[in-house]
Nucleic acid binder design. Structure first.
Lengths: 353, 353
DNA sequence: ATGAAAGCGCTAACAC
DNA sequence: GTGTTAGCGCTTTCAT
């Protein structure tokens, strides 16, 4: 009752409890023991319909959100899968993520992403951080890691799937394609099509081991045909499409005899294609072009760029299947090795012989 | 000593302890109490150099990785920031992520990403899952959420930043641009350039509220000039670049009088541009084009598409700054509202009057 | 500068 | 079907 005096009734102000709710709160609100509440909320064990209803009602009306931290500590079960990738900015890893999510969506597991920017030290940090959350598995890009990273992964005792690449020895399981083989096959296709003066354009990135392996396979297969890479051009940073244009102009001005350009990714390849078309260069007659990855974007280009599909989504799927299977016990083996075969897509920038 | 008999000395086989190491292991190995080991490993409180060395040496040689689950439970501090976005497949959210990472990299905080595929129910699930890990903050795309989602966010008591959009009421803080305004400004620029028969091309996605708001602002501003959208075309799925081509052809065949096409994103806009150039249509003379987002890709196109930069990276940065500041106590206010102003980039597909 | 004790919120294991 | 007890591996707090 307010009798006219202005009284600052500070004590009466009900500040909503900023303390998150616990099982105990639900237990008290429903008159059911904490343990049974826990059972209901996890659908474990037999609980009568009557109590189940009571508990569910109480939990919902309170807005209870379980504390997974406590749950994980008590059960030593964590439904997280660490996914460690070099970058999010070129569409290939988001596609891998899509494949991973597709599979994990049907399991209790949840992906958690860490990005390394192609830096081994950063990879080490991210890995340490993620392992300290005791995830159910690790999916990590590449086979090249620092000794410390390898040691951590080994010691963790959890399933590890190294993805993208199969040219090397995995710590545990691996799923990917052989980039060396991809490079070799592209080289053969190029030679078979009758091109002879071959240029290479790529990223200036010594830490991108997969691009390096493709290049190695490429030059190796060319050598077998008695051909050498005639000129090269590298870039870093900026819009890949634009860089592809610029590099193509540069390399063609420097080496006008080139009759084929192999790009380390589709985006710069697309830039090169646009440049050639703009410049009125006959593709694939005067000059042939090929990229790598098989990105969707190529479908909309004026001419379809030759490329090799790395099957990124399928890699993600397969890796997730291994983690999920081991996590639920349906797979007991370790050390799986899954090699997918990249498909050459000749497109319209590779002369038919 | 093996005296010739073949004895299966199973007991002697040292199976590497699959049990993860604990503080206790480090404590025993170093002869220092668990408490002091904990101090050393977290750089907290005063510890003599001598003991510090001992502990560090032991931890490193054992390969100890702290258990953050236990740490988080004990301290009720979790250095995770939940980031909830609709998709990873169109480059705009990866760019936001980049901005977030840039800022969080200088803090103890770590982003954890959840993807909703533009589905409110999925958003609810992901949110529930993430909140159950008691993160230090939530960054979530959009202002439209289910009642349950809003309730959860409210009840969580943690900092919440809604990003991308500022046309609406935030739960707590918000950082973004006004998509209505972006649509209006583009409409004005188009009218000012003298175009009159305007078509709209977009995604068939009723749940993309930001695209909807841009369209609303667009038609509203056109109406003020006495202009109506003359024809529309929508798509879903597939390669956006290709769809842009196809839709452009379709709409131009159906409505040959169109002299401007406004695309709801740059990718389909780029497809439209490529189509027009291929078809020998004079851009921007006969027909003008504009997209939305300001993606890097546009730099490499034969002609620069008019667009509006949404400042995605800066949005990520600003949101992360708010979470980081509130988490370390350097910001105590709540309810921040940061409106960034998108910049019209006229490019070369908008006639100059 | 170091240690001992208590407990974070939940679940495994075992009663009843 | 339901409740009780004892931790999970750390950090907080308080003592020394």
């Amino acid at each position: 009752m307010n009798d006219g005096k202005i009284i600052p009734m500070t004590d009466d102000i009900k500040i909503p409890p900023r303390r998150p709710l616990t099982l105990k709160d639900v237990s008290e609100a429903s008159g059911v023991s904490e343990m049974t509440v826990s059972r209901v909320l996890r659908n474990r064990g037999d609980v009568s319909d009557a109590t189940r209803e009571k508990v569910l009602a109480a939990a919902k009306s309170l807005g209870y959100v379980p504390n997974k931290i406590a749950g994980a500590l008590a059960s030593s079960r964590v439904n997280l899968v660490a996914v460690i990738i070099p970058s999010l900015s070129n569409m290939v890893f988001p596609e891998v993520m899509t494949g991973i999510s597709e599979v994990l969506d049907d399991t209790p597991l949840q992906p958690v992403v860490g990005v390394t920017n192609y830096l081994p030290e950063k990879e080490e940090e991210v890995l340490f951080e993620m392992l300290s959350w005791r995830p159910s598995g690790v999916i990590i890009a590449g086979l090249e890691h620092s000794d410390a990273s390898r040691a951590m992964l080994h010691a963790s005792g959890i399933p590890v799937v190294e993805i993208m690449d199969v040219d090397g020895e995995p710590i545990d399981a691996m799923v990917g394609i052989s980039h060396r083989r991809a490079g070799r096959e592209m080289a053969r296709a190029i030679c078979k099509a009758g091109y002879e003066n071959i240029g290479f354009l790529g990223t200036k990135m010594p830490l991108d081991h997969r691009a390096r392996k493709r290049f190695e396979g490429f030059t190796e297969a060319l050598a077998k045909e008695g051909v050498e890479v005639m000129d090269q051009e590298f870039y870093s940073g900026g819009s890949a499409l634009k860089k592809g244009r610029e590099m193509t102009q540069t390399i063609l001005e420097r080496s006008p005899d080139l009759d084929f350009l192999y790009y380390s990714n589709d985006m710069i390849g697309a830039g090169g294609l646009l440049y050639c078309l703009d410049a009125g260069i006959d593709v694939p007659g005067r000059i042939g072009l090929a990229g790598f990855n098989g990105v969707e974007l190529l479908d909309g280009l004026p001419r379809k760029l030759a490329t090799m599909d790395a099957g990124r989504r399928e890699i993600g799927r397969e890796a997730a299947r291994i983690i999920a299977g081991r996590s639920d016990g349906s797979i007991t083996e370790t050390g799986q090795r899954v090699e997918l075969t990249p498909k050459l897509q000749p497109g319209e920038t590779l002369r038919r012989w």
